[in-house]
Design a binder for these strands. Sequence first.
DNA 1: AATGCTAAGTATGATTTTCGAACTTATCTC
DNA 2: GAGATAAGTTCGAAAATCATACTTAGCATT
Lengths: 126, 126
Amino acid sequence: MEKWTMLIIREAFYGVKRFDDIREDISIPRSVLTSRLKHLVAHGILERKQYQVEGARSRPGYVLTAKGRELSLTIFALMQWGDKHLKDGKPAIAISHRESKNPLKVALVEAGTDEVSLAEIDLKIL
Amino acid sequence: MEKWTMLIIREAFYGVKRFDDIREDISIPRSVLTSRLKHLVAHGILERKQYQVEGARSRPGYVLTAKGRELSLTIFALMQWGDKHLKDGKPAIAISHRESKNPLKVALVEAGTDEVSLAEIDLKIL
DNA sequence: AATGCTAAGTATGATTTTCGAACTTATCTC
DNA sequence: GAGATAAGTTCGAAAATCATACTTAGCATT
């Protein structure tokens, strides 16, 4: 009961909200996705909220809570590791500062160091 | 086939080398630990090397490779999250700079920012 | 207001993984 | 050698995953 959790959170982080989209992206069985989503909602990492796209009917959607969003640092760190060690240094995603456009990284720094908040970043899938 | 991986790596990061110590710390069944260790060794994250403590017999020990050690950023990020959200903000471990004694954190920063290397840190289990 | 479409979620039985407990093996100590 | 200890294997029961089929609910069209 664990293998899928991070992948689902990553989907949510990418902005994928819908059941069937998550399912297809990561190839998880429906029944398992249902139970994982319930678990994540119960633990306050995802929130189930109805949403509506212009001209389509309203559907349930799953979005990260504040608590869930803060896991993104972990996900970025893991991606950074994967880029270096599993993919010959070629990143799958680029994280940059929205204003300055400078690339960002996850790092171990002095506690006082300024950090970039999640609200200030852009993701580009490569 | 996944639940235990991070916990085993964390053990290795703490410096726990021995089969039975890992097993007791995280309560993993022997057979599962065996297979997970094999897997981690096969993927170059752990290395199985004989080691000897003064006055005791030599035993097999599992230690992180360079590749494995680099996962520590992910683990720190996850710990930082857990401290904040699962444990009322009380950290289970403190990471500090060996020289300056300043506390450290994992953060999203500009790619050029100086970071503290793993060789320069002290861990204190609280 | 019935029909059909679509996406969310449930049901089910086979397969795979985990668990726990007992057993085997190898090495060190005496 | 005899005993002790820690690493690792075996094996049957329990739990989670998987693939596939089925149900449900809302809306759009007729």
